[in-house]
Amino acid sequence: MKRLSLLLVVMLVLSTVCGLTLAASQKLIKVGIVNLPPEESGYRQANVEDMNQVFSRANGYDAKQTNTADVNEQMAAAMGYIRDGVDYLLISAAHASGWDDVLLAAKRAGVSVILFDRMIDTDPSNYQAALVSDMYYEGQLATDWILNNVPEPRNVILIRGQLGSAAEVGRSAPLLKAAAEGKLNVVWDGTGGDTWSLEEARRVVEAAIAAGKDFNVIYAQNDGMAQGACQALEAAGISFGKNGKVKIIGFDFNRFALRNVQAGYWNADVQCNPRMAGQIDQWIKSGNIPKGVVYQKEIILDTNTITDEHIEKYGINPDPGKGVITR
């Protein structure tokens, strides 16, 4: 009798365990996504769209998403997701500091946190993984391109983005390092300001021309500012692009910029990949989430290496069409 009851108990336990695992395999993975609003930029739009596409019900996810530029709202949303009992919490923070309480709450509740696109100032033990763009690497790609493709003397106009932003600091550093090593000269150092403004970039280049500076490279830290620089050169009658005197480098892989590169109107553009969901999805599905910071692999394309496939696959924002130049 005793043996029989033990058997019964064992069978009962086994069946519940089996049942639970069976149920779990059919259950959707609950994910909470805290992100910035898509109207922030073309980059963010592509990022949000990618998140929506990958973390869909069809793909086995029960995802909730909050898009706001207000860091307090972001934290409140994250706390809400933790209370809802999500399995994974994905965060792209509007502001890097003040997240410790949220991250500790997630840890206590057993939620794994994956940061994407933007880092948080906290102890690395407070999150599982972070998938971000390496801005320094992007700057290195562009700087190496200059060193390999522009003969000496290399006189560069540097047009920075919002001063102090991660992108500006990262993309400036390799160029300034090369300048310090004497491999190239930064003849004019300007900024497009907090809005990475095309008009301001245009003014910077016009000022450099008026000051009589001799330059043959424009290193603009986003595509809009590269466009502004080209407008200034065109008005001043200075040749640029593939067969011109001044080489143009932009960042971000806007499709209009890539078409300009393809047409030889610009020389090169560096990727800043907003499509991170695929990689995170793969981590979650495989159950093999790395620990710590992981940098995305990014590329530079110039007039020789660019193809229609690149533009289709990696570009952001609408495509003006083959051969169309956006001046």
Binding site: E39, F256, P318, P320
Partner: peptide, 17 residues
């Protein structure tokens, strides 16, 4: 339409430059 549309036609370009 949640993107930044391109206005790359010759007339617009003339108005802008």
């Amino acid at each position: 339409g949640k993107v930044s549309p391109i206005l790359a036609n010759p007339i617009s370009n003339k108005i802008g430059t």
